[in-house]
Amino acid sequence: MNWLLVVLGGATGAPLRYLADRAVQARHGAGLPYVFPWGTFTVNAAGSLLLGVLTGAAVSAPAYALLGTGLCGALTTYSTFSYETLRLAETGRGFLAAANVLASLLVGLGAVFLGVELAGGFGSPGGSGG
């Protein structure tokens, strides 16, 4: 049962990341070389915020499987983030590469914390798991 919910969440989260990434890039100037990876940065922050809300609200296991492990897990990405960082570093943009790593981490942690607080705070289970 939970497995199906993870499948459903994953099948929604990945296309959502793709469409959100496109939307963010389009706002930052169509056709221009894409320098700082704002699209991925934004979806990772948004997914971390949502996962924080789910953790703070201590949602049921099926809801966590669908929205947490599935949706947030697939909406956010480490692989895209790491390849972007590599490309930035290899194209002589070491500062942007380092900024991407640090800002993604700090904003991601801040987003989770904010989400948890918005939903009622820590002390509730639901944490890890995927």
């Binding site: 971390s48 949502l50 996962l51 956010t76 990405t77 989770v112 995927g130």
Partner: peptide, 9 residues
């Protein structure tokens, strides 16, 4: 891969 679970953990 996931960033949100990483940040949440």
């Amino acid at each position: 891969t996931t960033f949100s679970t990483y940040a949440a953990d």
